[in-house]
């Protein structure tokens, strides 16, 4: 197969545009779920908060402003087709340029060192996950995650024999502990299997999936339904003020694992779940 040449400037421009759009436009599948929750929430305070979240999303989109002041440290998932030859510079620098440009008028939320805590001033560097895949396309998916929800996320290395019951207990415990801090209604990303590092990435990747699309594996689709019910039975509710809609969705992603372990990770996404992707 012929190699396709793609200037990195095209990647840069596309990713900058992707990020700009992600911060002002919440995904349509999420807005459908949010409005549905507003119509069905039993708690008056919960309903009021859901209404304000809908109004916020509409205002942000109309006015072209960020839905949340916390535009996070952007997480980029790059799938690079192995028949693509990127030209005109380094991909890493192109992605950093894209972030710099997209965040010019947004809050700068990144510090250069976790202990020294100097703001980088341009919201770089992003967190980038690379994957080489067949084909001649480049796909970039972005999650712009506030850290309220990120701070409540957790990994647990359960033993091999733990089974579904302990997985459920752990997921429910993380959501309950997070309570109002994660800005519910949340989207619950669950990773199962892999290794310590891998399971956290699975949980994050689970948040890339549009709402209303269950895991294709029947046992995991069933687990997603049961987890959603269990999480909503906590009664935490919208913004933690009590109610039936603590989460709008639970997404599970899995990977093979070691005979000793059942790793599980929970990564929560908040009520401003900014997500977008582009294929070049």
């Amino acid at each position: 197969m012929a190699v396709r040449e793609l200037p990195v400037q095209e990647v840069r421009d596309a990713v900058a545009e992707l990020l700009r759009r992600a911060v002002t436009h919440l995904p349509p599948d999420y807005l459908v779920a949010l409005r549905d929750a507003e119509a069905r929430e039993a708690s008056p305070l919960g309903r009021k908060m859901l209404r304000l979240l809908v109004e916020n999303a509409e205002l942000a989109q109309r006015a072209g402003v960020a839905t949340c002041q916390d535009t996070g440290i952007p997480v980029l998932f790059v799938q690079l087709g192995q028949d693509v030859h990127l030209t005109g510079g380094a991909l890493r620098e192109a992605l950093e340029d894209a972030v710099r440009e997209a965040y010019r008028d947004l809050r700068k939320s990144v510090v250069s060192d976790p202990l020294l805590r100097q703001n980088t001033g341009d919201n770089t560097p992003p967190i980038v996950h690379y994957e080489v895949v067949p084909g001649d396309r480049v796909r970039v998916a972005a999650l712009v995650k506030g850290f309220g929800a990120e701070m409540t996320s957790a990994v647990r290395m359960l033993p091999a024999t733990a089974g579904e019951t302990e997985v459920k207990q752990f997921v429910v415990e993380v959501v309950r502990q997070a309570g109002p801090n994660a800005c519910p209604p949340v989207i619950v990303g669950v990773g199962l299997g892999s290794s310590f590092d891998g399971v956290a990435l699975l949980a994050k990747k689970a948040l890339l999936r549009p709402l209303g699309t269950p895991n294709p594996k029947p046992h995991l689709a069933r687990l997603e339904r049961e987890l959603l019910e269990a999480v909503n039975d906590t009664g935490v509710g919208p913004q933690g003020l009590g109610g039936r809609f603590t989460a709008l969705a639970v997404h599970v992603e899995s990977y093979p694992t070691h005979i000793a372990a059942l790793p599980v990770a929970v990564n929560l996404n908040c009520s401003a779940p900014r997500r977008a992707e582009v294929v070049l």
Partner: peptide
């Protein structure tokens, strides 16, 4: 007091 987490545009108004 708690206000709307994720309601930043609306609150700015």
């Amino acid at each position: 007091l708690a206000t709307v987490g994720g309601g930043a545009a609306l609150l700015a108004r």
